[in-house]
Amino acid sequence: MAATTESVKADAAEAPLLNKRNLFAGLGLYLVFYVWVRWYEGVYGWSAGLDSFAPEFEIYWMNFLYIEIVLEILVASVLWGVIWKTRDRNVMSITPREELRRHFTHWIWLSCYGWALYWGGSYFTEQDGTWHQTIVRDTDFTPSHIIEFYLSYPIYIITGVAAFLYAKTRLPYYQQGLHLMYMVAVIGPFMILPNVGLNEWGHTFWFMEELFVAPLHYGFVFFGWSALAVLGIVNSEVDAIGKLLKKDLV
């Protein structure tokens, strides 16, 4: 097994360096899913999401919450488990071409992470601001929160950790230790989720109105900054890829 790593086999078959189908399928998956989510919000936000004490709220929103949490735990466990379980134990002995191929695969993961972060950090977070203009904050689990905090955030967390695990288990470059900025880029946005605790606690008794710039929200801001750590990842990747291409490129 040591002599015939999966990489060598893949190399022999000459798989494409970038599997475009996986890239577009990955990005497409998020798109289709989130368009469906937006449709669901549009319909059931209005018909069942305005009053958290109504029975239909339990049916269409609380059940959504329970199901998504179970599925997220399941997907995270399986995905992270599989990536770890199928790790390359001879990662330092792969060919440069295989390494390049894996960098491409790694960038499929990162592209998906960026995409998921967009939906979570931008789309669903600002969307929450406008939903609060249509309802009175009567529950922590308002429809926009069920999507924003408990769906879109876990999805980018799952994707980010998967990307990190992929790099750590399959790319020689990341065997030097723990890449500080990679951890910031994944753990920082992850911390936005626990920070929901602060947010909801504050809203329980400080104010019920919707002031987006309230200091109560600064925890989200602080952790949002960690998205900038993608710059460190890019720099590392460019270094690593540069080393692989240097003699042919320059």
Binding site: L110, W115, G120, I192, Y218, W225, A227, V234, V238
Partner: peptide, 20 residues
Amino acid sequence: LILWTVFMVLIGGYHIHYML
């Protein structure tokens, strides 16, 4: 790939910072 990712991550991070 890098431009796509950086652009998307920046939208997420910068937007959450600015909106709050």
